[in-house]
Design a protein around this nucleic acid. Structure first.
Length: 322
DNA sequence: AAGAAGGTCAACCGCATAATT
DNA sequence: GAATTATGCGGTTGACCTTCT
């Protein structure tokens, strides 16, 4: 398969962008839209490859990007979605309003991964590291592992569908913003219905993931059966983030929320809040109530995935990615 | 005060895949 | 259906910044 030679061309600039370059790119896209990224640099008078321009736009210049610290809710979202999706940053970013996949990836690698490891949790499997040493005698644990594996397969299928819808919606959304810059409508009716379609499928898959582990085919064809639960387990994600987006004001919410956790002992409070989030919402028995029996654990599992589904249901239509 | 070490994040690279010819 | 092109994604790098000694 042929590969784009654009970045191999001689004479193209690399490295950090200058304010002048930013201005040129911004001005061009505001006036014409990005159109073909490959053709954009020449039209905009930039000595960059299209790829570089696209990256600069999507990760930095785009007007609907929120910068600054991540809130507790955002951290929780990332952790839970990472447990479900793995390193699929673009999919995770879909559920985090105004955050780019690159930013989430960086935040995971520099903060969350280390913090989880520090707490003795494997950042890849999201299980306590000591679990790996146990010989798997616990039947419900192996069952959970099977469920997780099944879930992962399901999620892969779901994401493929979702990715297509996201792409279409993104395109529509951007075109809409170009023609109606003042309104900046994040949620078009088409994207909302797309999200509903995707979420219904997602719920079916999750539902089956904890049920009798039917084959994916049977679930996909019985899409009318399952309507997602309205689990209120998880902290309302729609809280500050969506509230600020409604007003069009992007605030540095993370900083404020951390401050709220308490003056000079901020770090301790941060750690506490972080741990509590995990303890409250994780399905892992060793992270929650150690005295729970296996049935309770099954319910926890369901709640854990329900909370993720809740997240999935609540955020995409508000997301700028749509 | 200065150098070392570690952390952060913007940007690049290469691959996969969708779209087009 | 094959070849080519364009775009998006995830992994990685390296420059810059902060903290530590």
């Amino acid at each position: 398969m042929g590969r784009s030679p654009c970045c191999d061309k001689v004479g193209l600039k690399k490295g950090p962008w200058t304010p002048e370059e930013d201005q040129k790119l911004l001005a061009y896209i505001e006036e014409h839209g990005h159109g073909s990224w490959r053709a954009l640099p020449a039209k905009a008078g930039l000595q960059r490859c299209g790829k570089s321009c696209r990256l600069r736009w999507t990760n930095y210049l785009r007007p609907d990007i929120k910068r600054g610290k991540f809130s507790l809710q955002e951290e929780q979202t990332i952790i839970q979605l990472h447990a479900l999706l793995g390193n699929r940053w673009s999919a995770i970013a879909t559920h985090l309003p105004k955050r780019t996949d690159n930013e989430i990836k960086n935040y995971w690698n520099t903060h969350l991964k280390k913090r989880l490891a520090k707490m003795g949790i494997d950042p890849i499997t999201h299980k306590p590291k000591s679990d790996a040493l146990l010989s798997g005698t616990d039947s419900h644990q192996s069952k959970n592992a099977a469920n997780l594996s099944h879930m992962a397969q399901w999620e892969s299928a779901r994401l493929e569908a979702e990715a297509r819808l996201v792409r279409e919606s993104k395109l529509r959304s951007f075109q809409h913003r170009l023609t109606h810059p003042a309104t900046t409508a994040f949620a078009s009716s088409s994207s909302a219905s797309a999200a509903q379609l995707v979420n219904k499928t997602a719920w079916n898959s999750v539902n089956n993931g904890f049920g009798d582990l039917e084959s994916p085919k049977s679930t996909l064809t019985s899409s009318e059966n399952g309507i997602g639960p309205s689990s209120m387990l998880m902290t309302e994600f729609a809280g500050t983030a969506s509230a600020s987006s409604e007003t069009g004001i992007i605030k540095q919410e993370g900083e404020q929320e951390w401050k709220g956790l308490g003056g000079s002992s901020t770090n301790l409070a941060m750690e506490d809040g972080f741990i509590n989030l995990l303890l409250n919402d994780s399905s892992d028995p060793s992270l929650s109530d150690s005295g729970k029996e296996s049935d309770g654990n099954s319910a926890d599992n369901k709640n854990y995935w329900n909370s993720i589904l809740d997240l999935v249901n609540s955020s995409p239509s508000d997301s700028p990615m749509f």
